[in-house]
Nucleic acid binder design. Structure first.
Lengths: 223, 223
DNA sequence: AGACCAAGTTCAAACGATTGACCCAGTAAA
DNA sequence: TTTACTGGGTCAATCGTTTGAACTTGGTCT
């Protein structure tokens, strides 16, 4: 049934996004999108010119939708920089919070299909790769790079810092993106709130140790 | 031109595998596969019954092809267990070797397209998910779990050990699987031998620190 | 040795179904 | 009148699969 508050194009973007997240571009037909969005087939060419145009519009909307995630992560850093400047215990808290927020942002039901779509674009890039890279990924990577450079003392442009940032992101986001494998390996039937809590703690500890902040693990709580 | 030594079905499996690794199942047409493998279109239904049958056969072959990887990683562990049993310096060496071999196994030109195909099946599972899970992934995850449990003292069946094993694999394999993003973030035009060397060192150090073996980093060389 | 045959394999051609795109007349609200 | 659609239809292109004939091969019979 149609969502009453949403316009036709918004409904199309949402529905098409979910379908594209589940299956590949070519596997989703325009007729299926139109039917699922309860929209006429012609609406695609009317609003987005093309199937490709619709696909691109989905990504542009994703970048807009994920702005709260970018802002939220930026604020964590900002607060840290404003507070105790070189306290390693404070760094540990910042890292813990950052990791917790990252896991949440990937695994939350609101953002999950968007993250899967982004992941697909990273693995099999199309024209939309640049959109998502410039609009979202670079921002988050840079933020994490700044945090790491503060802790390690290296410049954020260092090759090492960039590699570590990518690695931390990889382990924080893997649970949302490799859902079926995680469930198979962990023997979980679903990744619910309880499992997410466990993931957060394990990841925060692992990241802290990898940043030489392992001594501060017990002093930090995940709220 | 046709490879002289390879049979029709072997050529089809190799060619189809590469095509499926590049693009989604539905995006690769049977005609394209046949043309690329220099094989008649009907050869697909003759040898594999179906397009799906060909896809499945590709995965069964991948599991067979990757046996050397599994054996190689198992040998590293076996040698460790045979040698000094509780020497943390030896553990650090084992971990370093294990990580180095993991990175190699993912990024080597021989295995790269196979890894990408596996990754796709993990993200968007089909009937072949089980094949690759039981035939390859479970083996490697279990091996890494054993190594971690030796080092940490926890049981290999612990939730924590399994989560750490998944994370270590995620960061070791990300470079091969997110090639375009890595190049974009690192400013590399290609991931060559020099870059791989840097990745190996950074990853080994990171994994060592995350396993509380950070003190042994400088004593370990990557050969 | 030469004729023969059946199984295994490859071939060109065609099948029905589905695809994305396009078109245009009609409608309802602003 | 303009904007935002709906509904129905057509189009060429491409899809996975099937068909039946042709070719290749190895063994058997005369």
């Amino acid at each position: 049934m149609k969502q009453p508050g949403s316009s036709t194009s918004e409904r199309m973007l949402e529905t098409a996004g979910r379908l594209f997240a589940d299956r590949a571009f070519d596997s989703v037909s325009t007729r299926e999108i139109a039917a699922a969005a309860e929209v006429n087939l012609s609406a695609i060419s009317y609003h987005f010119h093309n199937k490709e145009g619709l696909y691109r519009a989905v990504f542009e909307k994703i970048v807009r939708d994920l702005k709260p995630v970018r802002v939220s992560l930026a604020l964590i850093l900002e607060n840290q920089l404003a507070a105790a400047s070189d306290d390693r215990n404070a760094y540990a808290e910042t890292v813990t919070l950052f990791v917790s927020r990252l896991v949440d942002s990937a695994i939350s039901p609101v953002t999950r299909w968007r993250m899967r779509l982004i992941k697909r674009e990273i693995e099999m890039p199309t024209d939309c790769f640049q959109i998502i890279m410039e609009g979202h990924i670079n921002v988050i990577h840079d933020l994490l790079g700044i945090l790491i450079s503060k802790i390690s003392g290296e410049s954020p442009t260092t090759e090492n810092v960039r590699l570590e940032a990518m690695s931390i992101l990889a382990i924080c986001l893997q649970y949302a993106l490799n859902e079926e494998m995680v469930k198979a390996r962990m023997g979980w039937s679903d990744i619910g709130p309880g499992e997410i809590e466990g993931i957060k703690i394990a990841m925060a500890e692992m990241v802290l140790r990898s940043l030489n902040l392992g001594d501060y693990i017990d002093r930090v709580r995940i709220e």
